[in-house]
Simulated scan of single mutants.
Amino acid sequence: MILIVLSLIMGFIGLNIGGIIGGAEIYAYLFGVVGVLSPGLFILEQIYKRSKFNEEDKLFAKTDELDLIKLRDIEVLSNAQLEDVIEMNKKKANKSESDEKFQKYKKLLDELKQSGYFSDNQYFSSLDKLEKYYDVY
């Protein structure tokens, strides 16, 4: 809804700027179209950047492991060191995934409380259980 209102406002501003700049109506229409489309394009770009960032994180994790194996192959790391580093990276990835799940479930509990499904006591009891399960304090 906000994006629609913002598009309309930007389109109006674009029409006015286009009308001021040139005597031909084409400028008003062009600036108006740019104004209407710009908020949506901005949001799409932000979504695209976030998705690319997540894909790059996964790619780096795979690349890092291959690089570590290469370091072992050229005898910079021993087998034991390689196993330790890979295990450390796996624990870090699991912790990150666990944190994401905790935040997702906490948001769900918040929504249930806001909708009136949970009382304050039920909400805090459920939140305590969730924190204990994910070892978050």
Results as ranks from 00 to 15, higher is better:
residue 3 L to K: 01
residue 4 I to C: 11
residue 4 I to A: 14
residue 4 I to Y: 01
residue 4 I to V: 12
residue 5 V to R: 03
residue 5 V to T: 11
residue 7 S to L: 13
residue 7 S to K: 07
residue 8 L to F: 13
residue 9 I to L: 04
residue 9 I to C: 02
residue 10 M to C: 08
residue 13 I to L: 04
residue 14 G to Y: 08
residue 15 L to Q: 05
residue 16 N to G: 10
residue 17 I to G: 05
residue 21 I to S: 03
residue 24 A to N: 14
residue 29 Y to A: 03
residue 31 F to S: 04
residue 33 V to F: 07
residue 34 V to K: 04
residue 35 G to H: 00
residue 36 V to S: 12
residue 37 L to D: 11
residue 40 G to S: 13
residue 41 L to Y: 15
residue 47 I to S: 09
residue 48 Y to I: 13
residue 50 R to F: 00
residue 51 S to M: 06
residue 52 K to P: 15
residue 56 E to F: 01
residue 58 K to Y: 10
residue 60 F to K: 05
residue 61 A to W: 08
residue 66 L to F: 09
residue 70 K to S: 02
residue 71 L to S: 13
residue 74 I to Q: 09
residue 76 V to L: 01
residue 77 L to Q: 07
residue 78 S to K: 07
residue 80 A to H: 10
residue 81 Q to C: 05
residue 81 Q to D: 03
residue 81 Q to M: 01
residue 83 E to I: 09
residue 85 V to A: 01
residue 85 V to I: 00
residue 87 E to W: 00
residue 89 N to E: 05
residue 90 K to I: 02
residue 90 K to S: 08
residue 94 N to A: 05
residue 96 S to E: 10
residue 97 E to D: 10
residue 98 S to M: 07
residue 99 D to H: 10
residue 100 E to N: 08
residue 101 K to W: 08
residue 104 K to Y: 12
residue 105 Y to A: 06
residue 106 K to S: 11
residue 109 L to A: 09
residue 113 K to M: 08
residue 116 G to H: 01
residue 116 G to S: 02
residue 120 D to P: 15
residue 120 D to A: 13
residue 122 Q to E: 13
residue 125 S to M: 07
residue 127 L to I: 00
residue 127 L to T: 00
residue 131 E to F: 14
residue 132 K to H: 10
residue 132 K to G: 12
residue 133 Y to K: 03
